[in-house]
Simulated scan of single mutants.
Amino acid sequence: MLARVRSTNLAVPRPDPGAGRTTGIDKRPVDRIEVFRPGPRYGDGPGVVGDHVGDTRHHGGEQKAVYAFSREELDWWEGELGRGLPDGMYGENLTTEGLDLESLLVNQRVRVGDEVVLEVSVPRTPCATFQRHMGERAWVRRFTERGRCGTYLRVAVPGTVRPGDPLEVLEPPAHDVDLRTAFAAAMGDDRAARSVVDAGCLPTIYHERLARHLAGEG
Rank of each mutant, 00 (worst) to 15 (best):
V5R: 05
R6D: 13
S7H: 07
L10S: 01
A11S: 15
P13L: 07
R14W: 06
G18L: 01
A19L: 11
A19I: 00
R21Q: 00
R21D: 06
R21M: 06
T22I: 01
T22P: 03
T23Q: 04
G24P: 02
D26R: 10
R28I: 14
F36G: 03
F36A: 07
R37C: 08
R57P: 07
H58A: 11
Q63G: 06
Q63V: 13
K64A: 10
A65G: 04
A68L: 15
S70C: 03
E72Q: 12
E72N: 02
E72V: 03
W77C: 02
W77I: 01
E78Q: 15
E80R: 14
R83M: 14
R83F: 09
G84S: 13
G84E: 12
G84K: 12
L85S: 09
P86V: 13
P86F: 12
G88I: 01
G88M: 02
Y90T: 14
G91V: 05
E92P: 02
L94Y: 01
L94P: 01
T96V: 06
T96F: 08
L101G: 05
L104M: 10
L104Q: 05
V106P: 01
V106L: 07
R111Y: 08
D114E: 14
L118T: 04
L118V: 13
E119G: 08
P123T: 04
R124P: 06
R124W: 07
T125D: 00
P126S: 02
C127Y: 00
F130G: 02
Q131H: 14
Q131V: 12
R132F: 09
H133L: 08
G135L: 11
R137V: 11
F143A: 15
T144D: 08
G147H: 01
C149W: 08
Y152V: 11
Y152A: 06
A156T: 10
V157T: 14
V157H: 01
G159R: 03
T160R: 10
V161F: 10
R162L: 09
P163Y: 11
P163N: 12
D165H: 11
P166M: 11
E171I: 03
P173F: 03
A174I: 00
D178L: 10
T181N: 03
F183M: 14
A185S: 05
D189M: 10
A192M: 05
A192N: 04
A192T: 03
A193S: 12
V197W: 00
L202Y: 04
L202F: 06
L210Q: 00
G216Q: 14
